[in-house]
Amino acid sequence: MKYYEDVVPGTVTHSPRSYKVTREEVIEFASKYDPQPFHLDDEAAKNTFFGRLSASGWHTAAMTMRLMVETMQHGEPQAGLGSPGIDELKWIKPVYPGDEIRIEMEMLSKRRMKSRPDMGLTRSQNRVYNQDDELVMTFIGNGLIRVKNPDAPIED
C-alpha cells in the first residue's frame, strides 16, 4: 500500500491504458446529464464550435476519473481517502466519439493536515491527452491520503 510518506513531489505517472470514447456513451451521458444538442445530435452539432458530435466536458472529466482510479490502483494501490475537490479545470480541445484519452499526473506537493494527523493532502497537475497526443483537458487535483505513522511529528 502506498501512503503519504511514499508520495514524492515531482513524480509523473501515466495511465496504464487509454479509454476509448464511444458514440453511444457520449449520447447516453449527455441525455442524462448535459442534454445540449451538440452532445446529442449530429446535425445540430455541425453548426457549432465543435463541428460534430462531441463528448460533454463533464463526461470527459468522468472518463478521466475512471483512468485516475485505475492508475492509482495499478501496481501498488494508494491509501487514498477521497478528495476535497479540484482547481483550475480547463477543457482545451473537444473530445469526440472514437477518440482515446489517457492521463498524465504530476505530483506537485504534499502536506500533513494539522487538524487530522492521520491524513495528508496532495496536489497534482493532471493532463489529459487524446490519441494524437493533443492536450484536451487539465486540472489540479487535491487528494487525501492516509498517513502510515500518524504519531510522527508534523513538519512545517
Results as ranks from 00 to 15, higher is better:
21 V>C: 04
153 P>A: 10
129 Y>S: 01
104 E>P: 02
127 R>Y: 10
36 Q>P: 12
131 Q>K: 09
104 E>V: 10
81 L>Q: 11
57 G>P: 14
101 I>R: 01
59 H>A: 09
91 W>Y: 15
56 S>R: 15
5 E>R: 00
149 N>P: 02
22 T>F: 07
29 F>H: 11
82 G>W: 03
4 Y>G: 00
142 N>T: 11
24 E>T: 08
86 I>E: 13
80 G>W: 01
130 N>F: 06
7 V>E: 00
128 V>W: 03
70 E>N: 06
121 L>T: 01
153 P>N: 08
73 Q>A: 05
95 V>D: 12
82 G>K: 01
140 I>N: 12
79 A>T: 03
125 Q>V: 02
76 E>G: 00
92 I>E: 09
65 M>Q: 10
130 N>P: 06
87 D>C: 06
83 S>D: 04
75 G>N: 03
65 M>D: 11
24 E>R: 09
137 M>F: 01
55 A>N: 12
143 G>Y: 01
148 K>I: 01
123 R>S: 11
83 S>G: 08
113 M>A: 06
91 W>H: 11
52 R>P: 09
114 K>N: 11
69 V>G: 01
117 P>T: 12
52 R>F: 06
19 Y>N: 04
35 P>R: 14
99 D>I: 03
51 G>M: 11
130 N>A: 04
16 P>C: 00
104 E>W: 04
64 T>P: 07
45 A>V: 12
33 Y>D: 11
145 I>N: 03
152 A>W: 07
128 V>M: 07
